[in-house]
């Protein structure tokens, strides 16, 4: 078991390392180096940077060194929590995104919970009542959910909210809380606004989840142990919940590991459409203005979240499936 956990944690670290390389590449991708983008940006605002200052900056970021030294410098700063400096915001990257990390994670997590809450019961219903009207309906809605990109769902939701109820759905905070420091009242306000994007984001993953639950449950329902349990005289409902559903949860959990990156991905686009104060719109802006440390930092952070998510789901699997525990001993 320790071996299993150790292996998973090791993979996690390798993945983080690869993501750090990817993020670094993203920082390097725009033509010219960071300082020249910075100077160009300053020039656009009408100010400038003298030669000596520019040279100092280059040395600080190690831009005069070969790329692998630059990477090492960048990576060692990251470990201390320094993601670089955003010239667009004229603040360290960390302080730009600090307030938005929580909202991003909350949005993705709630969307995941929402997906579970609806997809699992619907999937169970669909499998148990295979080929019933409800099953066909769920399948059809699932197809529809798969076919509508999440930004379109967001658009449609906004449109409905706006044209029917006169709501403007965007944003996560009431105006009075927008810039206020975190408090219980602000958190409650967040909850009040969060459910709309949660539903929008959750719907997208739901279709895939329903399919997984249904297919796996159908598989489990035809296994001999179900007949054995039935032959004991247990009631059908209890039987399904105790045996096949329990077994079908394994793929649900391992799928959630892949759903999380998908949800965080989706949250970026949905947040742009709904202008939510998450990492999404900041990322888009930073990419469009080639604010490279900010963009790289956000991508690195998003990567870390999803890897943490994968790790958690691996550990969950270990907890619910005794077979893994013994195999990996």
């Amino acid at each position: 078991m320790a071996l299993y956990i150790g292996k998973r944690v090791l993979y996690g670290f390798i993945a983080i390392w690869i993501i750090s390389i990817l993020s670094f590449i993203i920082i390097q991708l725009p033509p010219g180096d960071y300082v020249s983008s910075y100077i160009a940006n300053l020039a656009a605002q009408g100010s400038s940077l003298d030669q000596a200052e520019a040279e100092n900056l280059r040395i600080f970021y190690g831009l005069d060194k070969p790329w692998h030294i630059q990477y090492l410098k960048w990576a060692s700063r990251i470990v201390t929590g320094d993601l670089g400096y955003s010239f667009e915001w004229e603040k360290p990257v960390m302080s730009v995104i600090q307030g938005r990390i929580l909202t991003t994670v909350l949005l993705a997590l709630f969307a995941l919970v929402f997906t579970w809450l609806f997809a699992i019961p619907i999937g169970i219903y669909s499998a148990v009542h295979k080929y019933s009207i409800g099953d066909y309906l769920a399948t059809f809605l699932g197809f529809l959910g798969l076919a509508i990109p999440d930004f379109l769902i967001a658009l449609i939701a906004m449109w409905f909210g706006y044209s029917i109820f006169g709501w403007s759905v965007g944003g996560l905070f009431s105006p009075e809380f927008g810039t206020a420091p975190w408090s219980i009242a602000k958190f409650l306000d967040l909850m009040k606004h969060l459910w709309v994007p949660v539903i929008i984001l959750g719907t997208a993953g739901m279709a895939a989840m329903i399919r997984v639950v249904r297919a796996n449950l159908l598989d489990e329902l035809s296994k001999p142990y179900v007949v054995t349990a039935r032959a004991k005289g247990i009631s059908e409902w209890k039987l399904i919940m105790k045996y096949p559903v329990r077994m079908a949860l394994n793929p649900v959990i391992s799928m959630s590991a892949y759903l999380l990156p998908y949800l965080i991905s989706g949250s970026v686009i949905v947040s742009v459409v709904l202008s939510l104060p998450t990492l999404g719109p900041t990322l888009l802006k930073s990419l469009l203005s080639q604010d490279s440390y900010l963009a790289g930092g956000i991508i690195f952070l998003i990567g870390i979240f999803t890897i943490l998510g994968t790790l958690i789901s691996d550990l969950l699997l270990l907890w619910i499936d005794p077979r893994i525990k013994f195999e990996a001993r």
Binding site: Y225, T228, Y243
Partner: peptide, 12 residues
Amino acid sequence: FQEPMTSFSPVH
């Protein structure tokens, strides 16, 4: 049953 392996739930 014939197949006692698959006739028990593996996670209980």
